[in-house]
Design a protein around this nucleic acid. Structure first.
Ligand SMILES: [Mn+2]
Ligand SMILES: [Mn+2]
Ligand SMILES: [Zn+2]
Ligand SMILES: [Zn+2]
Lengths: 142, 142
DNA sequence: GGTAATGATGATAATTATTATCAATAGGAA
DNA sequence: TTCCTATTGATAATAATTATCATCATTACC
């Protein structure tokens, strides 16, 4: 039987001695339905439509929990505002980011990944993760 | 005759109709002497030793001006705090960043640069700049 | 099922980084 | 020197996130 994101999060909570709450369920539901690269307040506004009483601190706290559980990843681009995306079941990728319209284009180049590993190794460096962002103009905006 | 960073900045100011000020001269001096990847407040503290009266808004404003003039570049890493480094006369490079001690290791791999260009092209994307950061553990910290 | 222990929530305040405002100052063209 | 206005520094404002804490709700235990 294959594990769903809900299974993963539920097991993560149990393992950490954390509790299942209505808010955590709502947040996970909306997170799985949301489009990638959202900002916290975009996400917070979606959640408020469903539950007027939810607090922004709870959204912050639980998005970070989703990251800890390995389901989400934080992306920090120029503005400083944190964005998140689903990583569970998604292959690793990097981003082309349009300077005009803000679009994120997801890309992957295995050759670059390999060369990055070699570059780290050549510097006695043990890589854990990386961020490659290419800024420029997309087809519609160039 | 070869242009110094001071020449570049001076010409930039003239071209933009901006004024030469004591603060701008101090900031450029210390910027050229500073070690790379400093945060604004690290830099601000250095400047205050020289001129107790300098304001932090002035430092912010003028570091951004140095970027506009093409002498500096802003680096935003995890913490959200902006860092700057001298780019004038320095070849382009990327960074390995130690998760434990915070060290920045400067690296360059031409093959990666070329593949990045191809990756952008394959997506109808006109690249302007990029950021490659590999996070992990340096020799001393692994 | 009932209940106590304690983790989670949401309102609010605090913090951190940066930017805007504005009266006073000073660069520099004429 | 005069005058215009860009610049400065103090301060307030903004923006994003995090800490605090009284109250609430989940869960382990009887
Ligand atoms: Mn993505
Ligand atoms: Mn560098
Ligand atoms: Zn675009
Ligand atoms: Zn290190």
């Amino acid at each position: 039987m294959i594990k769903t994101a809900k299974d993963i999060f539920s097991e993560f909570l149990t393992r950490k001695g954390l509790r299942q709450t209505k808010q955590r369920e709502q947040i996970l539901d909306e997170f799985l339905a949301a489009k990638a690269h959202f900002t916290i307040d975009e996400f917070y506004n979606i959640l408020k439509k469903r539950d007027q009483s939810i607090g922004s601190a709870t959204v912050h706290r639980n998005l970070r929990l989703l990251c800890e559980a390995g389901l989400a990843e934080e992306i920090k681009i120029g503005s400083g505002k944190a964005r998140f995306e689903l990583t569970f079941g998604q292959p690793h990728h990097d981003h082309l980011i349009c300077l005009k319209c803000g679009r994120f284009i997801e890309v992957f180049d295995n050759q670059i990944e390999i060369l990055q590993g070699k570059l780290a190794e050549a510097n006695d460096f043990l890589p854990q993760k990386h961020k490659l962002e290419i800024y420029g103009y997309c087809r519609q905006c160039r």
